[in-house]
Design a binder for these strands. Sequence first.
DNA 1: CCCGGCGCCTGAGGGC
DNA 2: TGCCCTCAGGCGCCGG
Length: 275
Amino acid sequence: MPELPEVETIRRQLQQFITGKRIKEVEVTTPQILLHISPADFQQRLRGTVFTSFSRQGKFLLCHMNGGELTILIHFRMTGRLFYGTPSAIDKTHTHISFWLDNGRLLCYNDVRKLGKIELIKGKLVNNFAKLKSLGPDSLSPDFTPQLLYNTLQGSRRQVKDLLLDQHRIAGLGNIYASEALFDCGVHPQKRAHTLSSEEGEGLHRSILKILHLAIESRGCSIANYVDLAGERGAYQRLRRVYQREGEPCYRCGELICRIKQHGRSTYFCPRCQQ
DNA sequence: CCCGGCGCCTGAGGGC
DNA sequence: TGCCCTCAGGCGCCGG
């Protein structure tokens, strides 16, 4: 479930429903999901702690426990999800980590492909955590300005779509929203980043924000298997203009949407609207 | 720095 | 029905 809007949707729901809840017990059925910590240690450290708040950096979800004493860091990769509900209501197929809460409900990490990762960060180390520090500015943070994007583009000879997927430059965009944003501003995905004009840079910046806000309003994109905390699908897939529309007419000009491969990943674009 | 390839995993869908 | 291939919202590592 991966990109920024989906993680943000989950974060908001956690903030609303899980804040203040205490963990009674932790169940680890698939240890490989845990990074740099044993199941026993993970359980022991989290037992009895309270969910204080939830934040997000790019596609990382941070669950702050006991006012920041500990942070659970979650990356969903391709198919990770979180479910919240009563034990009888939750389908435990592909559930790897379960948090039993003091209200009798369960918060479960579910992941068909088991590519997602969960780790624990102690106290103030969060601000120094290498993995988070190496991220570029979050696409929705005030640091992500038109000027910053333009400077980033100027500093790279890579294809612009490839650059947009690099979390160390800009954090949050994934394969769907990168294609959608480039279509929205009419920039060809294979254009070299440094060749974009400042107007194109500004247009791209505007489109990224527009697409991300629209996707969050739609509570994410459920082309494949993404669902939110309550198991509900998002609605953005109905608004997408190019992603997975190969061979279908462009909504703007009628030309057929193309699919190309960039670094092993599909990119969708309109050859007429994106020159 | 940049790029391509592989590995991590499972499941869905298409061609034969 | 089965097999084999490709593909999938991601990312880290390695070698050239």
